[in-house]
Computed example of a mutant assay.
Amino acid sequence: MEPRITLVTLGVSNLEESIRFYRDGLGLPMQERDDDSGVAFFPLDGTWLSLYPRESLAEDATISADGNGFSGITIAHNVSTKEEVDTVLDEAEASGGRIVKPAQKVFWGGYSGYFADPDEHLWEVAYPQLTDD
Rank of each mutant, 00 (worst) to 15 (best):
S56R: 15
V12Q: 00
E17K: 08
A65P: 07
I5A: 10
G109I: 08
F21Y: 03
G109V: 01
L44F: 06
E93D: 07
A103K: 04
D24A: 08
P43S: 10
A126P: 04
V85P: 05
I5E: 08
G69N: 10
D132H: 13
E17T: 07
G27V: 05
F41G: 05
E91H: 07
L26M: 06
F41R: 12
V79M: 03
A40P: 02
D35N: 13
A58H: 09
L49Q: 06
E59F: 09
D34S: 13
W48V: 15
S80C: 08
M30V: 08
D132C: 09
G72L: 08
D45A: 14
V12H: 02
L57G: 01
E2L: 14
D133P: 00
A76L: 11
F42P: 01
S56M: 14
G113A: 07
L44S: 07
R33D: 08
I5T: 12
H121W: 04
S37R: 12
N68A: 13
S37Q: 15
L51H: 04
G38F: 06
E84M: 11
V100S: 12
R4Y: 13
A76F: 09
M1G: 14
T74N: 13
D90E: 14
I73S: 11
S64N: 11
T9D: 02
D132K: 10
W108Y: 14
G97D: 04
I63T: 10
L57C: 06
E55N: 09
L122Y: 05
T9Y: 02
G113Q: 05
A126V: 09
S71Y: 05
T131V: 14
A58I: 08
P118R: 03
Y111K: 02
A76Y: 10
D35C: 06
R4P: 06
L26T: 05
L26W: 00
L15P: 05
D86E: 04
L10K: 03
A65D: 08
P118K: 04
I75G: 05
Y111A: 05
F107M: 12
W123G: 00
L10R: 04
E2Q: 13
T131F: 11
R98F: 09
K101Q: 15
L26N: 02
E32F: 10
V88F: 04
G97N: 02
P3D: 12
Y111V: 03
D24P: 01
L89V: 00
P43T: 12
S56H: 14
T131P: 07
Q104S: 15
G72Y: 06
E124D: 11
D90V: 01
L49K: 01
Y22N: 01
L15S: 00
V88L: 12
S18P: 02
E16Y: 04
V39M: 14
D90C: 01
F21P: 03
D119E: 06
E32M: 13
V39R: 13
D24K: 07
G11A: 04
K101S: 15
I63E: 03
D34R: 12
G46F: 07
P102E: 14
F42V: 00
D117N: 03
A126Q: 02
R98T: 15
Q104N: 14
